[in-house]
Design a binder for these strands. Structure first.
Lengths: 237, 237
DNA sequence: ATTACTAGCTTCCGAGTAC
DNA sequence: TGTACTCGGAAGCTAGTAA
């Protein structure tokens, strides 16, 4: 009995269901729902996984108490590594996002000019952002996907601060170039307290981007995030 | 025709094979080898994936040129997220490693005492390591797994330096507690230039760990890495 | 050399049902 | 309530082979 992909994915769901604890209590009906199979199939999976030594079961009343073995966890981690490997290849080519210029520069621009942020920008990015951010609406789902992946990328971290009246959240900066280098010292910023969704991008630079590129609302901009998650030097406290 | 897990995994392998580029050139025989199926099955997979809109093919001589669509990449990323979700649950409960004390404290101890490192330890960890590291041999494959996962964890980064005679590599420190808190200010260290394999662990602490715990070679030690990858504050430059 | 169809065997899936 | 067996139909896999 050789476990196949579905078996390993079932194992992964069991791990998740058990919140990583030592053992899981779940009925075959529940499991069937989770993996989108019948109760009967779920039952069969459990029997087969047990035979393969990837989990152990002990009767607990009518139910079973399931313990995933080390080998079981290994199988899940292996599968994860395989898929991760294929995705990291996307990382290495860098994140590229296509967007359309939209208005809405009021808010970001104001925040970026606050002294509590400006000194940190100077120190960590080497420049002060121009008083006005570039707001982009991402154009395709590939870009939105890249945007999501950015969360796991290394960033230049700008701490939040508190003044007499209120507190301000952190800002993560992802150094980037625009339009193949036409602007080479820009950064995508992600605010702790933002109201935008993942299909929007906010970009800063030391100069006025719109003027420099000669663009206006509705024009296309190509953003290329330059830091990759491969460099261990970027992770420190 | 609904693609199943094997289809998505095939897609992942195609991504990897194509090194993330826009298109892949691969024969069905090659693909069959990669996914451990026959040439015929590989061919069928490609036909089905195309029908499902997850890739497109154009004839290039006898071969095909394969382009994975956005939806195709999405499917791979989705699968990745699912599995990631199930193992992040392991993360949240923290990394726990079981090891056995072995000798071999010479090298690490010497390096850790160098001024170029010591000042950074003081600044970033808040203590100077005791002159002697604890070397552990990991006891089970689960621990070795955890050891590998550590690479993706946030760490306290100690820069390398150069003195008159040679240069010294960086050190990554992963704060940890030993034996359920018997030692609560320790750190697993990973050296840029190490000769150990992944089944070994090197631990520092402000005091002599062996004396404090009253342990000797061959005794068991439980290591619990306390930082989790969830905290965005840890990623800065 | 390729891709991909067909035939036949194997495995998977779920309804029914025993316990 | 539970788990898990049988069994018929569906889907998957490969060898042979056409193109």
């Amino acid at each position: 009995m050789h476990p196949n992909l579905q078996h390993i994915l079932t194992l992964a769901h069991l791990l998740e269901f058990g919140k990583g604890g030592a053992c899981v209590e779940i009925t075959t009906t529940e499991l069937g729902n989770i993996i989108s199979r019948s109760q009967q199939s779920a039952s069969k999976y459990l029997v087969e996984l047990e035979k393969a030594g990837l989990l152990e079961r002990t009767k607990a009343g009518q139910k079973f108490r399931i313990m995933i073995t080390d080998r079981g966890v290994d199988e899940v981690l292996n599968l994860h590594e395989t898929i991760k490997g294929s995705i990291e290849v996307l990382d290495r080519s860098g994140l590229q996002l296509d967007g359309k210029v939209v208005s809405g520069m009021g808010e970001g621009a104001y925040y970026m000019s606050l002294e509590g942020y400006r000194s940190q920008f100077n120190e960590k990015l080497g420049y002060e952002p121009y008083a006005g951010t570039l707001n982009l609406k991402l154009l395709n789902q590939s870009s939105v996907r890249m945007r999501s992946m950015m969360d796991n990328y290394p960033s230049v971290f700008i701490r939040g601060f508190t003044d007499s009246s209120r507190s301000y959240g952190w800002v993560k900066c992802y150094p980037a170039i625009l339009n193949d280098g036409a602007v080479d010292k820009a950064a995508v910023i992600v605010l702790e307290r933002t109201h935008y969704d993942n299909s929007m991008l906010e970009v800063i630079a030391p100069i006025g981007i719109k003027d420099l590129l000669g663009i206006k609302n509705g024009d296309f901009v190509k953003v290329f995030v330059t830091m990759t998650p491969k460099d261990p030097l970027l992770k420190t406290t």
